[in-house]
Structure formats: structure tokens, C-alpha cells
Design a protein around this nucleic acid. Structure first.
Length: 968
DNA sequence: CAGTGAGCGAGCTTCCGCTTGACTT
């Protein structure tokens, strides 16, 4: 019997379709994309590793040829598909009918290399009829559509992997930029900027309770005084808090409001007009991914991921249709099912006369699926599933069911009543009031579904605000009056739901990515959640500013929209991928984005310090600047600095809070006053961790790091003074003083130029001179606490043992010859000797000992740029004594040469007088880095130097300078 | 943003879209 292999994207879909197809067909899934550009170095095949473009996964010099790899976690599955393909007589690629789906089909074809006929089929709803119709009308893979997808993929890779490194250099490491996330971040930042500029205003009005002759009460609001309209919220300029220019309105003060309250109470009012207007309201379209997330958030309080997790479960269980869609379309069977259910549950009066069609396309919609609705040709009611579904899932199903059913229900009908009243206060001032009401005569679809509310019936009552049947000319009494003050509100922050809505409206992002976009911008530290609101961080401000100023086109709100137009041209065969990418990446005679040349240019031009400085309008005139530093955001005014506390959101930073923070910098905690010296003792969080100081000047009289286990917030005075008593003179040995000190690398003893580590911090206080002498008798680096002690040792016959050590960059393996850093997941605990050997063989590298290269790397990797010259001089000075790793066999410990004649690095003050030995360029480089604390990368272009060359020069220069200063 | 010793391995970070499990909290 002939065997046909059908491949769809999702396993749940495969199960359903298999049922419809019957014998002769087996249905499998690709589980999404099966191949992609390599994500990082570990995914790049060995043979391409040396290529300059391998990092991008696109050969940018050769028509942007993509390098596709099957991700490690997909290999097994692809192998399985390959095997099934080999056994089949025919293959049908039935992935989604959109750009990505077409691409998946093409990748399957490429990767499975089938030797049997291959067809492509598409369908938009999973019903027996639709599937059978689709299978009867197969087509071929649309290579233009595949090209469009490849162009999209390449553009996103180039944008992300070329622009992110600019941020690493200019803002902070590990940040990211991308077509979607950068615009999303910018939206948050721009909204927050509006809030930061916002000036609030106050206005008053009166809430009047009117009473008719029949003793019916109703609320009315004061709208006019003396023939002039009262000012309301929209009459104020959000930038100044003042009334908009030319607004012919009356601003009521509190005193006036009080006076009117007294003057109006008990007065008679006349109805001057009463207008009744009928209205109708249509139901909302069935759910698509974005609206489901919005309503999940508004009605159920679910974050986007929670909604999607529940939806996924419902889909897998066969309760709903596919949950990642941008189409509001319902299949015929769905419309029929919904209409049947409306009649059954609400009666025929509630059914819309004709089936409703929701055809309005979202921007850039691909419409490969149906709307999200209950599955099947007759919907199961929420009540019938109560015992079957878990909490989140049931509530979401209920929502989906209501929305779907409501979409086929009748319009809601009602009347709106608007009444105007006039009168006179006792003081003689004429006043105008207005009252409005709303009566729902026929709820229609509102019976099932009210947007934003969890309970349609309760919400219906809320919406019904009837007024007594007031007639023109009727007299009523102003029974009670309450003056009310109002404040204008800044524009609200985005929530997850409203950001998704905004992105979707701009055509940015896809149903499958909305939830993850929110995750990305939070993971990268661009936004935090405060309740429901998404608040951009200071880093987001710096990043957005950089992108806006230097890569403006990339963060245009319609960048994606334009891209989509271009991709449509490619998909339609009117344009091609290669020229498109060339214009974007390389530029074409001044045409196009020309990203690469732009980055090369901007790298030299972007002023990292300027970008890190964030304009806060409310601090204008205070002289205080906000800046994002390597260690978080801080404020600066001249020499004074203060950290910005973590919870402080940007729009809450007023001049007042800023001054307050500046007056007690860095969240310092005053512990008390040292009676002996009279100086204050302050606990601080510093660049190198928590510490205490004696005196609050700069520099303080003395300072000391806290020990591990000490807590900044609970440190007592007694403990602080004890810490500050360090360093401690232990005694005298061999004619030299022995000091117990707490250093960068932990506690140690110092005797002249010699030192030994101590095992614990507390020993700093307890170690005696005899113990100290014993320690100095021993060679260095003995005993525990020494970095060189391996965490584990793997003995393997016939070769040197492999050691697992803990290094600055995490755990790594070494056998003395080669080293290999462990990756995430290669746990230290479950590592076997065999696996250790494998890793070492696979990626072990001989440690680089070529001084020049190693030194220059080190120099640039140092966080403090101003000190960049120090390590380089150190390592070059050490060069003669450098040990060849091969000599250092395991077990040969303790033979460390004592001739390590490392000189203490000279200070800048000591070096400065010798600047004369340098050339002009060298001098400029060295002063810029050491005196102004700038980075070589920044300075180089200004001096007309290539960055690499400048780094080399800086090294040589500081070497020369040290030599000169030491007089050798 | 403080300040002290010498000594241990380089390598990676990052995009958007398509899809589930396999993990842990």
C-alpha cells in the first residue's frame, strides 16, 4: 500500500489531521523551524570557524549566502523525519501557509533530501473538508516566498548581531538591539519621557445631586459659570500645567467652588434641554493572539506568558483552535456552531440575522490560521468542562467561548440621555449643569461578553446609568452639592497588554513572539514591571538615545512596515533578496540603509559619556546629571556623586528627591561617631563591594571592606571599628614588620615585599607572630584557599590527570597542556572522567602565551580604562620569568620560582614627568587614557589611528614610560 | 564611585520566528 508522509508544524495538529486522513497517510510534525543560522560560536561547523563572517552566519561578501545548521536539540528529531521520509512513497509538506511556513517546508525539503515525489499543500482551518480539499489541490514550494523569508531572517540577524556590539562598547555588555525589541523599548522610553516632562494641574468643579418633583435623585455636574465654560482636564497643557493658550474657559479656584456650593444649595434649576439618542453597539471580533493576551490581562489578570501557557494546554487538549494567529476569520463550521449555541442558550432574539464576517486584516497579517475559538463543529459549553479543565485553562476557555459566541450575537441597543440645566446662585451668578444617562434596552451580545469585564451581568448593570425622565422646562432642586478637585494625569505607562496592542498596531512582531518580546526587554534590563505597568530603566534611556541619535532609521516606528513592503515585493517576484540585503547592509552608491559603513563611522563618533548622560527635564538648572555607569545609574554634580536607588522609577526623580539623595550619597548608612577620633563611621556600598569608612570626606580617613558574612545593613559600631582597625601589626620578624591585611584577593600577611594568604578573614584579628613566621617559612600558595587547588581530579590511565578548576570565568578543565572552559549545563557535579576527556579533546586549547597579544587583550578587558596601562606593564615585565605550561606538570607544586621580581606599578604622578620620552601621538594616547580615563577605542579615531594600532601603541608607550621612570 | 599581592585559561554576550518538551521553582 502506498504510504504518504504528511509533515505539519505542530504535533497537536498532526494528531488531528491524521484522524481526517485515514489509511495510507502518516502525519508528522516539524516542531517549528528545523534549521536556522548558527546562534553562537558553538553552533558553527568547524570548517567555517575561521571565516570572518562566521559570527553572523551569513557570508556578507558572497551574496549573503546563509549558513544553515540544525540546532543540537533538533538533530534527533530531524534524523527521525529523515528516516520516515526514506520509508515513504510520497511526501506532502503541509506547513503553515505563510512566509515562515513556506520556509519550513523548503528547509524540510533541503534537509530530508527525499527521493520520492514531494508536494506542498496548505489549508487555513483544520476541518475534514478543508484538509481533504487541500490534499486534492497540492502545489509546489513557492521559492519567492522562501526568498522573502530568508531576507527577513538575514535582516534581523544583521541588525541584531551588528548593532548589539555597538551597545556593548558604548553602554554596557550583554545588551541587545533588534528590529522588534528596540522599537518596543523606545515606545516605553518615549512614554516615560512624556511623564517626566508632565506638569500636573488642579481644577475644581461641583457634583450636584438634583431632585425632581417626584423625589427622584440624579447626579449632575457644573459645566458653566457666568456663561463661561469651566476648565476641565483637556484644557491644560501637559508640558506647563497651565491652561492652553486661547482656551476661553473659566478656571474655578477652591474658594470659588466653596462659595458656589453655598450659593447653589437648595436653589432651583431648570431643565434647558433634554436630548435622547438611540445607539447600537456591535460585538467584537473573535480573538486573535494579541486580543487574547489583552483580554487575558484585563479580565483575568494574566501576564502574556500565562495566557499563552493556558492557551497552549487548551490547544493540545483539542479544546480550542490554534492560539498563535492574526486572523479574525471563523470557519463555516465555527460560525454554524456559534449560531446554534446562541439560539440554544440565549434564544433566537439574540442571534444576529446573518452570519457575521470579521474580515478586517491586521497590519502585516499573514492569516495562515483561523481565529482562536472553541474547537470542533459544536462547541462545548464552559459549564460542561468545569470538572475537566484546570483553573487557568477553564477561565481562558470560558473567555474564548464567550467572545466567539458573542461575535455572532445581535447588536446591543439602547438610549443615551443628555440633559442640560440652568440656574442662578444666591450671589446672582448664572450656572449651567449637565447630566447624562444611558439605558440599555436590549443587551444583545453584551449578555455574553463585555470587554474588559469578568462578569457580563454585573458589567451590564454598571453600564446602565438611567436618568429620571426629565423634560425640557421641568424644575428641579439642587439638593446637595459637593465641590470636587481634580488633577490632570500624565499619560499612562504601557502595560504588557497595551504594549502588545501598540506593537501589533504598528505591525511589529508576530503572534508567536509577542509574549517573548516582553520577556526579552525585561531580561536585558530595559524594563521592569511595577504592578501591571512596564517601566523603562535608565539603561533603556541610554540605549534608546544612542539608537535614536545614531541609528535613527532602525528605530523608526515604521521600519518594520517598510521592511514588510519590501518583503512583499520579493515574495511577489518584483524584487530579490541579494540586492535588498546589499542596500541594507553595504549600501548601494549612497542608497539604502548601509548599516555596516554606518556602524564603522559611528563607532568612532559616538560619545559614550554623552550617551550615558540622560536628560531629566526636572533637574534642569540644578546642575545634577543622571548617568548610567558600569555599576548602575547615578547622579553627579561636580565631584559629588550619588547612586540612584533601585526602586526609583525615572518619572519620580524630581529636583527635590535628587537633592535629597545627593546630600547622602550612595545610600550611605551612618553607623555612628568614633569617640576616639571624633570622625563619623559610615557603611557604604562601593565599586568593590560593601565597606566601611572612618570619616565622610573624600578620601576618608580610613576604609575597610566588610568580611563575607557581614551585612551592610546590620553592621554594628563595634564591628565596624574592628574592621577599621585593620591593617594590624602582628609583630616583627627578621627585622621587618609583619602586617595582617585584607586585600583584593582576601586576607593576607605582608612582611616587606613578601606575602602569604590567610585561610580566613577572622585570622586577621587572631594570627600571632609565631604562626605568621611559620607561614612565611612555607612556600607561597600552600594550603587551602589557594586558587590553584583543583575542585576535582579525573584520573585517566595512560595520561596526565585532568583537573577541574575554578577560574575567573567559571569552571574549566586542564591537563597542564590544554584548557577548556565548561559550558552551561556541563555541570561540575555530574561530570565523568570520560566526558572531561571528551571536552578537553574537543575544545581544549593551549593557553596563549604570546605576550603581545595576551597583554593587549588584558589591557582592553580591564574595567577601569584609566588603569589600562598597568596590567600590560606587569605582564611584560614578567615575560622573562614566564613559565612554559609544559614544564608545569601536575604535582610539581611548590617549585614556584622565587625570582618573580614584580615591581610595584608606578603611579601616574610618578610617570608623568617622563612624558618627554614619548612621541606626540603616544603622549596624547597615554594622557587621554590615564588622565581623562577614556578608552583607547574612543581616542584612537580622534588621533587618526586605527583602533588596533592605537592599542599596540598605548602598550609600547606605557612600557617606555615605565622604563624611563624607573631609570633603566 | 576605595584600596591593597601575586596568581590562575579565554571566550562570549546579541537578533526574530516557528514549535515543544525537559528541566526546576
Amino acid at each position: 500500500m502506498a504510504r504518504t508522509l504528511v509533515i505539519v508544524e505542530s504535533p497537536a495538529k498532526a494528531r488531528t489531521i491524521e484522524k481526517y486522513l485515514g489509511k495510507g497517510y502518516s502525519v508528522e510534525s516539524s516542531i517549528g523551524h528545523i534549521r536556522d543560522l548558527p546562534k553562537s560560536a558553538s553552533d558553527i561547523p568547524e570548517k567555517y570557524k575561521g571565516q570572518a563572517w562566521a559570527r553572523l552566519g551569513l557570508d556578507v561578501e558572497n551574496d549573503f549566502q546563509p549558513l544553515y545548521v540544525v540546532a543540537p536539540d533538533k538533530r534527533q528529531h530531524v534524523a527521525k523525519l529523515r528516516k520516515l521520509a526514506a520509508e515513504a512513497d510520497e511526501i506532502i509538506l503541509a506547513t503553515d501557509d505563510d512566509r515562515e511556513g513556506e520556509s519550513i517546508a523548503w528547509h524540510l525539503f533541503q534537509e530530508l533530501k527525499p527521493k520520492v515525489p514531494v508536494k506542498r499543500m496548505v489549508f487555513h482551518e483544520i476541518t475534514k473538508e478543508a484538509i481533504q480539499a487541500a490534499i486534492a489541490h497540492p502545489r509546489q514550494i513557492d521559492t519567492n516566498l522562501v526568498e522573502a523569508q530568508e531576507a527577513r531572517r538575514a535582516l534581523d540577524r544583521l541588525y541584531g548581531y551588528e548593532v548589539s556590539p555597538v551597545l556593548w562598547k558604548k553602554v554596557a555588555p550583554k545588551l541587545s538591539a533588534g528590529r522588534v525589541q528596540s522599537v518596543a523599548t523606545r515606545m516605553l522610553v518615549e512614554r516615560e519621557r512624556e511623564r517626566m516632562r508632565f506638569v500636573s494641574a488642579t481644577w475644581w468643579d461641583l457634583l450636584v445631586t438634583g431632585k425632581t418633583g417626584e423625589d427622584q435623585s440624579f447626579p449632575a455636574r457644573l459645566t458653566d459659570v457666568g456663561g463661561q465654560r469651566l476648565a476641565g482636564g483637556k484644557d491644560f497643557d501637559p508640558l506647563t500645567g497651565r491652561l492652553r493658550e486661547g482656551a476661553a474657559v473659566r478656571l474655578l479656584t477652591e474658594a470659588e467652588a466653596q462659595a458656589l456650593t453655598t450659593g447653589l444649595t437648595g436653589q432651583a434649576l431648570t431643565v434647558t434641554s433634554a436630548e435622547e439618542k438611540p445607539f447600537t453597539q456591535r460585538p467584537y471580533a473573535p480573538f486573535i493572539t494579541s486580543t487574547l493576551q489583552q483580554e487575558g490581562s484585563r479580565k483575568l489578570g494574566f501576564a502574556a506568558t500565562r495566557t499563552m501557557r493556558a492557551a497552549q494546554k487548551l490547544y493540545e487538549g483539542g479544546y480550542i483552535t490554534y492560539m498563535r494567529t492574526d486572523s479574525t476569520n471563523l470557519s463555516v463550521e465555527a460560525v454554524t456552531a456559534a449560531r446554534t449555541q446562541v439560539t440554544q442558550m440565549y434564544g433566537p432574539a439574540f442571534l444576529h440575522p446573518q452570519p457575521r464576517v470579521y474580515a478586517k486584516k491586521a497590519k502585516n497579517a499573514q492569516e495562515a490560521h483561523e481565529a482562536i475559538r472553541p474547537a470542533g463543529s459544536s462547541f462545548r459549553t464552559p459549564d460542561s468542562l468545569r470538572g475537566e479543565l484546570g483553573g487557568d485553562e477553564w477561565r481562558l476557555y470560558d473567555l474564548i467561548w464567550k467572545r466567539t459566541v458573542a461575535s455572532q450575537m445581535a447588536d446591543a441597543r439602547g438610549r443615551g440621555l443628555r440633559v442640560r440645566l440652568g440656574g442662578q446662585a444666591q450671589g446672582g451668578e448664572t450656572v449651567g449643569l449637565s447630566a447624562s444617562g444611558r439605558t440599555i434596552d436590549f443587551p444583545g451580545f453584551l449578555r455574553a461578553y463585555v470587554e474588559g469585564s469578568d462578569d457580563p451581568n454585573a458589567a451590564l448593570e454598571d453600564r446602565d446609568t438611567p436618568l429620571p425622565p426629565l423634560k425640557e422646562g421641568e424644575r428641579v432642586t439642587a439638593e446637595t452639592i459637593r465641590p470636587e478637585s481634580h488633577e490632570t494625569q500624565p499619560p499612562a505607562r504601557y502595560t504588557e497588554a497595551s504594549l502588545v496592542q501598540a506593537l501589533e498596531a504598528a505591525g511589529i512582531g508576530r503572534p508567536s513572539t509577542y509574549a517573548s518580546i516582553l520577556g526579552t526587554i525585561q531580561d536585558r534590563g530595559y524594563a521592569t514591571k511595577k504592578g501591571q505597568a512596564l517601566v523603562p530603566t535608565w539603561t533603556a534611556f541610554a540605549t534608546s538615545a544612542l539608537l535614536e541619535h545614531h541609528f535613527g532609521k532602525l528605530v523608526d516606528y515604521d521600519f518594520t512596515a517598510r521592511m514588510e513592503e519590501d518583503l512583499d515585493d520579493i515574495a511577489g517576484g518584483r524584487a530579490s533578496r541579494v540586492p535588498y540585503l546589499r542596500r541594507f547592509y553595504l549600501g548601494d552608491e549612497g542608497q539604502g540603509m548601509a548599516l555596516k559603513p554606518l556602524i564603522d563611522r559611528q563607532m568612532g563618533e559616538i560619545d559614550a559619556r554623552g550617551i550615558a548622560t540622560i536628560h531629566v527635564p526636572r533637574l534642569d538648572g540644578t546642575g545634577i546629571e543622571v548617568r548610567v555607569g558600569r555599576y548602575g545609574p547615578y547622579m553627579q554634580r561636580g565631584e559629588d556623586k550619588a547612586n540612584l536607588p533601585e526602586g526609583l522609577v525615572p518619572d519620580e526623580l524630581t529636583a527635590e528627591t535628587a537633592e535629597d539623595l545627593m546630600s547622602r550619597p550612595s545610600g550611605d548608612r551612618l553607623i555612628g561617631t568614633d569617640e576616639a577620633s571624633g570622625h563619623p563611621v559610615v557603611a557604604r556600598a562601593g565599586r568593590y563591594g560593601p565597606y566601611v569608612t572612618l570619616g565622610d570626606g573624600n578620601p576618608p580617613v580610613r576604609s575597610a571592606s566588610l568580611f563575607p558574612g557581614d551585612d551592610l545593613n546590620t553592621l554594628t559600631m563595634e564591628r565596624a571599628l574592628r574592621l577599621l582597625s585593620l591593617p594590624r601589626l602582628v609583630g616583627v620578624s627578621e627585622g621587618e614588620e609583619v602586617w595582617a591585611m585584607n586585600g583584593k584577593y582576601g586576607p593576607y600577611l605582608k612582611r616587606g615585599g613578601d606575602s602569604r594568604s590567610l585561610n580566613s578573614h577572622e585570622e586577621l584579628f587572631t594570627v600571632g607572630i609565631h604562626e605568621a613566621e611559620a607561614l612565611f617559612m612555607q612556600p607561597r600558595f600552600r594550603g587551602r584557599g589557594v586558587a590553584a587547588a583543583p575542585l576535582r581530579t579525573f584520573e585517566i590511565e595512560g595520561r596526565p590527570p585532568i583537573l577541574l578548576k575554578s577560574g575567573r570565568f567559571g569552571p574549566y578543565l586542564t591537563d597542564g597542556e590544554r584548557n577548556a572552559t565548561l559550558r552551561k549545563g556541563e555541570g561540575e557535579d555530574n561530570l565523568t572522567a570520560e566526558r572531561a576527556l571528551e571536552i578537553l579533546e574537543e575544545r581544549g586549547k593551549e593557553p596563549k602565551k604570546k605576550a603581545g597579544k595576551a597583554a593587549s587583550r588584558k589591557a582592553t578587558a580591564k574595567p577601569a580604562a584609566g588603569k589600562a596601562a598597568k596590567p600590560s606593564t606587569r605582564s611584560s615585565a614578567k615575560k622573562p620569568a614566564a613559565k612554559k605550561p609544559a614544564v608545569k606538570k601536575a604535582g610539581a607544586k611548590g617549585t614556584v620560582s622565587k625570582s618573580s621580581t614584580v615591581k610595584t606599578p608606578l603611579t601616574w604622578a610618578e610617570l608623568k614627568p617622563h612624558l618627554g620620552v614619548l612621541s606626540e601621538q603616544e603622549r596624547q594616547l597615554v594622557t587621554a587614557t590615564r588622565e581623562q580615563g577614556r578608552k583607547v577605542d574612543e581616542v584612537a579615531p580622534g588621533l587618526g589611528l586605527d583602533v588596533k594600532k592605537a592599542k599596540g601603541m598605548a602598550l609600547q608607550a606605557s612600557k617606555k614610560l615605565n622604563q624611563a621612570a624607573r631609570g633603566d
